[in-house]
Structure formats: C-alpha cells, structure tokens
C-alpha cells in the first residue's frame, strides 16, 4: 500500500529524514514513534504530498506520488483521511463540519445525510451532531475529526498525535475507534508520543530517531523491550 524507497528530506542543512526505506502493507496498523523532531510529522507530510522528498521515491499503491500533478495530488488526498492533534474543527456544528467536506466534493444532500449518519455512528457522536465544538470535550472533538477523516471511506488513515491533547480515558477511546476503522480495510499510520496507547495496542511500531528508522517491530511497544 505505502512504500518509501531511500527517502531523504532536508530543511536547509538539517536532515529530517535520512534514506528511509519502509513498506506498509494494505490494512496494516502502524505506530510511528520517536522524540520531537525525529521526523514523524515530516513523514506524514510526505505521504500526503504536502511536501516532497529531496531524494527517493514514495509509492502509494503502485504509483510514485512524487511526480503527481496538482490534480493527482487532489485525487490522492480524497482517498486519505487525516486526524490532527489540534482537531482542526471549524467553528460550526459537527454536522456542518462533516457536511463541509462532502459539499466541497459536490455530493447530493441525501448522500451527505447517509454518510454523516454512518460516520457518527462509528465514532459515537449521534447525539452531538448539532453541537458546536466549544460545547464538546476534547475527546468528542477528536471523534468529530475522525468522523470527518473517514467520511469518504478512505483506504489510508493518517493521524498525527491524535491523543496528544486528550486525557488517558479519552485517548484509549480514540485509539479504539481508529483500531475499529482499521478493521474496515483501512491502512492506518499513527504518529504518537503516547506510550500507554502504543503499549496497549501491540501493533507494528516504527521508531524514528534523528531522521533514521532505528526500530521496526511487529506487535511492538513504545520502547524497545
């Protein structure tokens, strides 16, 4: 599903990713761990083509996304979901936040309703549809962010510190929802600092340090055992 070949990314003289080689299979659940500045967010940005590597290739499916045109990048992103630490929820009701994505895509009202009904059920926000973000807890706002990310049934879900602003209980709930989404044929990549969550889930862990992959472990933990 995702393959990185010898990917290097520098910002001025600072090497953020150094000759990275990775393969993430379809429907896999992967944690990216490492200290701040290890290159986790940069890696996610390369996958969404927000940024381009200085060298190396990134394949999503069978296609090298480095050479994508603006239109192709647009199509790539329509097939990905994104979850952020700071939620990036608009100051509108949850329904409007979810409908916003679909309206941009020109979906019909009936389809919008159906898709919203489906995702709010998945994340458990059925009773909060007409609430504004300030009326919700952090966990609920993150649920809304996840609902928005999966509204188009993406094949890949990328999450950057999804539990970074949440208390332990809410963090567990969020990661369980993401895990549930992973079971619906969605490849999941989560960049996180949350030791508890990583250790609990026992999924594949890729540890980055100074732009290098220092560990790639199936059923891994936050720290090397």
């Amino acid at each position: 599903m995702i393959r990185l070949r010898n990917v290097t990314k520098k910002y001025q003289d600072l090497t953020v990713l150094n000759h990275i080689n990775l393969h993430i299979a379809k429907d896999e659940f992967v944690f990216l761990v490492g200290q701040t500045g290890a290159g986790k967010t940069t890696l996610l940005n390369l996958l969404t083509r927000e940024d381009k590597p200085d060298s190396g290739s990134i394949y999503v499916g069978m296609t090298n996304i480095n050479d994508f045109s603006e239109r192709q990048v647009s199509n790539l992103r329509k097939n990905m979901g994104f979850v952020f630490q700071d939620f990036k929820i608009l100051n509108r009701t949850i329904y409007e936040n979810l409908a916003y994505v679909l309206k941009i895509q020109g979906e019909k009202k009936k389809v919008i309703q159906e898709k919203i009904d489906r995702v709010v059920e998945t994340v458990g926000l059925e009773n909060k549809l007409h609430c504004y973000p300030y009326q919700l807890s952090g966990g609920e706002q993150q649920k809304a962010c996840i609902a928005r990310a999966i509204i188009n049934k993406p094949h890949i879900l990328l999450a950057d510190e999804p539990t970074g602003n949440l208390d332990p209980d809410a963090s567990l709930e969020i990661i369980q929802i993401i895990s549930k989404i992973n079971l619906t044929n969605t490849t999941v990549v989560v960049a996180t600092h949350d030791k508890t969550v990583v250790d609990l889930m026992r999924k594949r862990v890729i540890a980055l340090h100074g732009g290098n992959v220092i560990r790639d472990q199936q059923m891994g933990s936050y720290h090397e055992l």
């Binding site: 647009s74 790539l76 329509k78 994104f82 916003y100 994505v101 941009i104 895509q105």
Partner: peptide, 9 residues
C-alpha cells in the same frame, strides 16, 4: 488547510 486535505485543488 481542511479544503486542501480533502482534495480541493
């Protein structure tokens, strides 16, 4: 930012 990430050109 959101528009970009959901694929708006």
């Amino acid at each position: 930012k959101i528009m970009k990430l959901v694929g708006a050109t």
